[in-house]
Amino acid sequence: MDFETFASARWPRLVRTAYLLTGDHHEAEDLVQATLAKVFTGWSRIRRLDEPDAYVHRALINNNLSRYRRRRVMQFLTPVLPDRASPESAYGGISGIEAKSELIRALTQLPPRQRAVVVLRYWDDLSEQQTAEALGCSVGNVKSQASRGLSKLRAHPALAGYSGGTGLDGMDHRDNRDNRDGGGK
């Protein structure tokens, strides 16, 4: 498969993943473009991998974590939430995206590695093992981060509309006050 065919087919899905990671539509497209530009330079090798998609996932996650560390972007982590946009704009295309939904705000309040675990596990449907490989950490770390992330999201108003909330998913919910980026290899 040539690079353009591969990249154009993955573009929408990658942008959506990046949107959950960054909380911003323009930042998401920029992140995916930067990641694919890097993939392009090694495409002759990457195309021969058993799972080029796994490689691109890793690159996307690492690129985002690297950007976060470098810039320490705080604009989406502000404790004072901006006024909520109307429901129509909040869920309807780019203008809605800019207004940011409750869920996106909830996600962006998670530490970046925890957010990445939640996105990879529950949006991209990666297994714990695949998520661990994408993040370069242990499966135990993925379980722990997922547990903490879910615990925070469960208590967030963003999920109030999703019934149930009995919540317990069989995981160890320790120390959900810990807001540090506790990832590691």
Partner: peptide
């Protein structure tokens, strides 16, 4: 619905309305 399913459903609902631009 457990928390994992709630989050899955919420993420899908959130992204259903997101339309990325054309492949640039």
């Amino acid at each position: 619905m457990d928390t994992e399913d709630m989050v899955r459903e919420a993420l899908r609902a959130e992204l259903a309305a997101v339309e990325p631009g054309e492949w640039p």
